[in-house]
Simulated scan of single mutants.
Amino acid sequence: MGYAIIGSGNVGKALATAFARKNLEVAIASRRSVELLEPIAKAIGPTIIPKALKDAVEADIIFLAIPFGTQKEVAKAARSWQGKIVIDVINAYGVSPEELEDLPSSVVVSHSFPGATLVKAFNHLPAEVLAQDPKVKDGRRVVFLSSDDESAADKVATLVERLGFAPVKLGKLTEGGLLVQARGKTWAQLIFQDFVKF
């Protein structure tokens, strides 16, 4: 099972840090050149592999830690998205409901990746919290996830646990998933909530 993080901003680096902490290999890519990503990857750890976008999207599970609206550009990098799991870490804060056609942002994002299954996860914590050790006293920091595909949600939940977090499923994207999706200039109820599961 190969993993890739698309995005090398604060959230992308926080996700890479979570992988490095557990000694798990993950590719990191962005619209930047591989040469510009090399010092970022080196600073995080030896299991973080800088790659060109076209190579990173060959992974089985791909994190989108990019600004909303750039997903279409990322989608063009792969010949096919069939069978892949896309983890939507995007927060579409400030994007109007009209622009989203009154759909949850994750549903809109999923339209760019035909053949892939989408799981919303890792987006509710600020980058600086996401980068911290998820072990808190005698518990583990919670990561919420939602998906319309139960099998994909299970696979991502397993990865969440491997990274040391506690997965909490919220159900489908248009149901519990709305609790972690911004709407216009309103943050959903669970965004920025730092919960620990004991």
Rank of each mutant, 00 (worst) to 15 (best):
E175S: 12
D133V: 01
L179G: 01
K135W: 11
T174N: 14
A166W: 04
D138Q: 12
L130F: 07
L145C: 11
R162S: 07
D138S: 13
L130C: 08
R141M: 08
A188L: 11
A182C: 14
V168M: 12
L159V: 09
G177I: 10
S147V: 07
R140M: 00
S151W: 02
K135A: 10
G164S: 05
L173F: 05
L178K: 09
T174D: 15
Q181G: 06
G164N: 05
V142Q: 02
W187I: 10
P167I: 01
V180E: 06
S151R: 12
D154H: 10
D138Y: 07
A131L: 10
L159D: 07
E161L: 07
G177A: 09
Q189F: 10
A127R: 04
D133Q: 04
K135C: 10
V160D: 00
A157H: 09
R140Q: 06
L130N: 07
V168Q: 13
A182N: 15
K172H: 13
G139P: 13
D154P: 02
V156H: 04
T186V: 13
A188V: 14
V136T: 11
G164P: 06
G176Y: 12
V160K: 03
G177E: 08
E150M: 14
K169I: 03
A157T: 07
F165T: 07
G177Q: 10
F144R: 12
K169C: 07
G171C: 12
R141N: 04
A188F: 13
Q189R: 15
A153C: 02
L145M: 10
A131S: 15
S151H: 10
D133K: 01
L145T: 09
G139L: 01
L179Q: 14
S151P: 07
K169Y: 07
P126G: 02
D138W: 04
D154F: 03
T158A: 15
